[in-house]
Write a protein that binds this DNA or RNA. Structure first.
Lengths: 150, 150
DNA sequence: TTAAGTGCAAAATCTTTGCAAATGT
DNA sequence: ACATTTGCAAAGATTTTGCACTTAA
């Protein structure tokens, strides 16, 4: 693990009053290294058995509670995790970006750059947060498809 | 069960080449009678043990395959089901309405009346479907809250 | 030093599968 | 009659809990 990255991860942990431990650094590293949201099974595979499965669950849960990562369900209902934006806090998440789910590879991308539309609120309801999921084919699967045709 | 409703449910089943059986009618009735999307455990409770849990799972799965119901995940990742719009087919769902999740009672409402916003597609991706979830407080929980204050 | 975090075993859930019996057309 | 559907038992998968040991601060 690169030294500067370790420092960054350590700072994230300290900011949330969490002790700096190997499992937590490993989880942060592995989530950070992917450009798509990662599920518990994927993390288990990529981290290897350096850390216990139960610990992995516990780390993911506490990271979500603290607002370090946010949970997104993929098309099959499996929980996946991605880093939160810096303004997330323990009690309020601010991850109101579009989540793109690829129907071929099942990957989830957090598309920060797309601006969110306004949703009109029906009478009697109040809306605190809007979650937008776009479902389609991601850029990687599209190029694979194009390659297989040509 | 009312006679005319039974006829409607029977027609739905026949339209999809499914045999008319008691478990299937019960599931249709119970989903139809709720104004919010219903989870497997809720259905199990409301149907009672007239039908087996495994049958319930199987009925829900085949209904979803056939496009009779659609699956929505609630805030805790539990699958919930609601009736599809009539233009849904086996291979293509057309349920692009807003799903409202109440953060108090965890209910999910299909808000057919809200018009969907346009989402701009990032380069390299293609979007087939957009799912919008609004998270907030539903009308029932709002009035409960108001009542408890006054 | 000590509160927080980890690992292991075991339990609790949730969902699917195999197969014989029952049922709809 | 016969393919489909159901119910039961059992397996598989996923997630949580309890508790003793370890470790960061």
């Amino acid at each position: 693990m690169k030294e500067d990255k370790v420092k960054t991860f350590e700072n994230i942990l300290r900011k949330h009053h969490l002790k700096v431990t190997l499992p937590r650094l490993k989880v942060l590293e592995n989530i950070f290294n992917k450009d798509t949201a990662t599920s518990q099974p994927e993390l288990e595979k990529s981290i290897g058995k350096d850390i216990d499965r139960v610990t992995l669950y516990r780390v993911l849960n506490i990271f979500e509670e603290k607002g370090i990562i946010h949970k997104i369900f993929d098309l099959h209902g499996t929980a996946t995790y991605a880093l939160c934006s810096p303004q997330c806090t323990t009690h309020q998440h601010h991850d109101e970006h579009v989540h793109f789910s690829c129907s071929i590879c099942n990957s989830i991308y957090c598309l920060q750059e797309i601006k969110l539309p306004e949703i009109s609120t029906p009478p009697g309801f109040s809306i605190n947060q809007v979650a937008i999921s776009a479902i389609g084919i991601c850029n990687k699967c599209k190029s694979l498809k194009a390659a297989s045709i040509s």
